[in-house]
Write a protein that binds this DNA or RNA. Structure first.
Lengths: 238, 238
DNA sequence: ATATTGAATTATGAATTCAATTTCCCTGTC
DNA sequence: GACAGGGAAATTGAATTCATAATTCAATAT
């Protein structure tokens, strides 16, 4: 992630000059970082399980040096826990963690909504509207997974429209940490219907560029999602 | 930072078990991380300057391996920029960066205020009240630096009272990134007076546990600080 | 004098090596 | 049969080494 940041600066500088594309060579550790992060977020590495360096090295066919560099970064992002001399563990989401992360995401999402309203273009609104209709179609067909994906896309578009990369990065980081939990949120049809209705409001606020309204809606929207996830967790753990 | 997190868990686990103090052995890279971060935040390493690994290795008398691990983490925090094959640079705060970071800090500080009101104890309020009076005294004596320090402490206490370590960590991270810029905010006496008045409101909201009020006040408070910093930057750069 | 090329130097990326700690298994004892 | 002790094997922390890319600087051409 940090590498791309640097690379982008370099990018824009060179492109400004002559418009030719620079050759982007990634370092091993940055590629590892991406892949590992993806694996953790997608649940390919089970939470709570130990991750011996050796096995990862074998899997990716790299030496321990770049791998360890990547692990250090993942630890600083909270995706793994490093214990000195005892190695890495895929961090497990405790209930407390969720309770800490969700309010923050709520605040950030509200902010992103507000800023998006200030900056979003008509084209972007149109794209989100299209996605919205797609999503509604998936809802009517009761296609949970497809709904989930398009839903994510919409929120991602809003984030992009906020024109604040720092905000986007932070939000994505937090989002990655709770993503697994969100899959668990198996909404009832009643709640699902509500969620879709909320999305109607989201679209409306965006179209009207009503920042404070969108902020409020998004915050509530996420708070309710949290309630669902919470119930899912508490009922599932006993 | 990530090591301490792990270490803390380890800590609490062991203390729960037998009450004896655990032996905390830090890894080299985690110590390096701390020291480097401090140096950058404090401005000991000048922004924009290149940081050859060799010189840092010599300075701390360590090999490149743990140093490079620390650099990777600092890069992910945004404190340094890593460019493949070209080394590390202490990241310079651009005006755009500030403009991105401050709204986020505003949102997070507002959230921390709201949560603090829900959780803060009478003792903590009393401590903050004491700090507040200290701060007012420094204001009346026009002791800018001392005021600045106590001011920071107050905001830190609110952050702690919010009982959300994730939030605290995020906020501190962002705060570190703009800390140097904040020193620059050389307020006029008029603005300074206003700031102190705002702090009266902050204290009042805390005492009354009025979360939404505190959230609003803190957000505005920070927004104004941003205005000052912004002016300082724009006037200073031409 | 300035710009350009190419070799020498330096710095970085990554693998390997070495040292220290932990883990695991085996044995012996109670 | 449970448990403590000891030692081998495995795992991690950190230094060193090797390979490759970037930078510097002098020699040459323009």
């Amino acid at each position: 992630m940090e590498q791309e940041h640097a690379a982008n600066r370099e990018n824009s500088l060179r492109e400004d000059r002559d418009g030719s594309k620079p050759i982007v060579r990634k370092t091993l550790h940055s590629e590892l970082l991406e892949r590992l992060r993806q694996m953790i977020v997608d649940g390919d590495l089970t939470p709570g399980s130990k991750v011996p360096e050796k096995s990862l090295c074998d899997r990716f066919a790299v030496s321990r040096t770049p791998l360890r560099e990547a692990l250090k970064v993942l630890a600083s992002e909270g995706l793994v826990i490093l214990t000195p001399n005892r190695g890495a563990m895929v961090s497990d989401l405790t209930f407390d963690d969720l309770e800490e992360v969700f309010p923050i995401m709520g605040a950030l999402e509200a902010l992103s909504g507000e800023m998006a309203c200030a900056h979003i273009s008509d084209e972007e609104v149109a794209e989100i509207r299209a996605l919205h209709h797609q999503m509604v179609a998936h809802f009517e067909a009761r296609e949970r997974f497809e709904y989930f994906i398009v839903n994510q896309k919409i929120h991602e578009r809003i984030l992009v429209a906020a024109r604040n990369e720092t905000l986007a990065k932070l939000y994505r980081g937090l989002s990655g940490r709770v993503k697994r939990a969100r899959y668990l949120a198996n909404m009832s049809i009643a709640r699902w219907t509500e969620a879709v209705e909320e999305h109607e409001l989201i679209l409306k606020a965006l179209e009207e560029r009503d920042g404070s309204a969108l902020a409020r809606i998004l915050k509530d929207h996420l708070a309710r999602k949290f309630e669902i996830v919470k119930d899912g967790l508490t009922s599932g753990r006993n």
